[in-house]
Simulated assay, not measured.
Amino acid sequence: MARLWFSPAVSVEGDGPDPTIVVSTVEGAAEQLLTWAAQGPKWHSAVQVCADAMCGGATSNQARIAFIAAAEEAGRLREAVKTTARTGSVYDQLPI
């Protein structure tokens, strides 16, 4: 299966010795989501959209948008991404 890339990548807070993790694929986003203790409504949506994208039912951009929302909900989104995400219509496209 071909990788489903994010453009641009999304930086989130990591655990342990690596304070920042750069997520550049849908698969990487799904892996990160499964490590988070905080599992709110946006987390559940992001997990579903990532799974849909890996099965061809959603785009990598839709997965990226959902991942950003989940990361922000969990307090893991790095500040640079928050600023970049809000410059366009990213939040208008969130699956809720």
Rank of each mutant, 00 (worst) to 15 (best):
G57F: 15
I65V: 14
K82Y: 07
N61P: 03
Q48R: 05
I68S: 01
T59S: 15
A63L: 02
T87V: 08
G57A: 11
G75C: 06
A70K: 09
A46F: 04
A46C: 04
V47L: 13
A71I: 06
G75P: 13
A69R: 00
A51H: 06
A46E: 01
A85E: 01
A85R: 10
F67S: 00
A74W: 03
A66H: 06
F67L: 07
G88P: 10
R86L: 08
G88E: 15
G88M: 09
E72D: 15
A80R: 09
C55D: 15
A63P: 02
R64S: 04
E72K: 14
V47Y: 12
D52E: 06
A51I: 05
A63R: 00
R76I: 07
T84L: 12
G75W: 13
I68D: 09
A58N: 01
I68C: 04
R78Q: 15
E72N: 13
T83H: 15
T83G: 04
A66D: 07
T59V: 09
A70N: 00
A58H: 00
K82G: 10
Q48N: 13
S45P: 02
E72F: 13
A80N: 13
Q48C: 14
R76H: 02
T83C: 11
T83D: 12
C50M: 08
M54C: 15
V81I: 15
G56N: 12
R76T: 00
A53E: 01
E72A: 14
A53T: 01
V47R: 04
A58P: 01
